[in-house]
């Protein structure tokens, strides 16, 4: 590109970039504030004159306290196990279901799909109490299974994959049938390898949602169990350990977000590809 034209376009873009930066900062503000507080000593947090940059750093005090008093590493590991478990099952169920609803001709397919869509209308909170009772009676509360099982079937994922697969040419699947592939082989050998963009986009939604989920872990895991997910861990820390030590609390919160931020930065390009391709918005 000619350097001159580049300069000019940058100049023309300036107002746009300024507005975008301002909005970006606005959205980032709570996060930046959280990080800022996590670095400050307590007296500075309560000071009336607010400043973003800490005068004295209290990293050791705040973060040290988190590491000393709660098993934060364990919470992060729990989060990873639960999110991975949920995602694996969601994909294992939703990919074949989406394929069947998109490409197989069977009686009642549209009715079945209508029921799936109805599932989208039911908020996660509605079945919480029946599930709790069922889990309590079968004795699976306070296990990973209790954390993972209720989320293994994602209606949203079935819907999303169905839409994605519908756009795939029928001829691809017919060619596969003529090549001697059974329906399972078609799903795992042809459909899934081509569904990676959609699967990646869905994976990010799923992991973010369940990493940050507080509602169900709060119900399914009782006491000060070793099964707490990151969000639950922060809550425990607030009520039992930190009291009103906001510096330490924010340090814990910052720590729980680090894996997600890191994952997002690594997969940024794929994430954006996935969203633009499926036409979905967060």
């Amino acid at each position: 590109m000619i350097p001159g034209s580049n300069d000019r376009s940058l100049l023309a873009d300036l107002p746009r970039l300024a507005i975008l930066s301002l909005l970006g900062l606005l959205f980032l503000m709570p996060y930046i504030w959280m990080v800022s507080v996590s670095l400050k000593p307590l007296d500075e947090v309560w000071r009336a004159s607010m400043s973003l940059i800490p005068e004295t750093l209290a990293i050791d005090k705040n973060y040290g306290r988190v590491f000393r008093e709660v098993p934060i590493g364990r919470y992060l590991l729990n989060g990873a196990i639960v999110c991975a478990g949920i995602l694996v099952f969601q994909l294992a169920f939703a990919l074949p279901a989406g394929y069947a609803l998109a490409k197989l001709n069977f009686r009642g397919r549209e009715t079945l799909f209508a029921f799936v869509m109805l599932g989208l209308l039911i908020p996660a909170h509605v079945p919480a109490i029946p599930l709790y009772i069922a889990f309590a009676k079968t004795g699976v509360l306070n296990t990973y299974a209790a954390l993972i099982a209720p989320s293994t079937i994602s209606v949203f994922a079935i819907f999303m994959f169905r839409q994605f697969f519908r756009a795939m040419p029928d001829e691809l699947i017919q060619a596969a049938r003529m090549d001697g592939l059974g329906e399972w082989s078609i799903v795992w050998r042809i459909i899934v390898p081509n569904a990676w963009p959609a699967a990646t986009a869905f994976a990010i939604f799923s992991v973010v949602a369940h990493w940050n989920d507080l509602f169900w872990p709060l119900i399914a895991v009782s006491g000060k169990g070793d099964l707490a997910t990151p969000a639950l861990g922060v809550i425990y820390f607030r009520t039992e350990e930190a009291g009103d030590d906001f510096g330490a609390l924010m340090a814990a919160a910052t720590l729980t977000t680090i894996p997600l931020v890191a994952a997002f930065l690594l997969a940024q390009r794929r994430f954006i590809e996935g969203i633009t391709m499926t036409g979905l918005k967060g």
Partner: peptide
């Protein structure tokens, strides 16, 4: 079934994997 008929088909549109 199509797979058991021992015939091969070439499609109008791209049907490659």
């Amino acid at each position: 079934r199509a797979a058991d008929r021992a015939v091969a088909m070439v499609f109008q549109n791209d049907a490659h994997y």
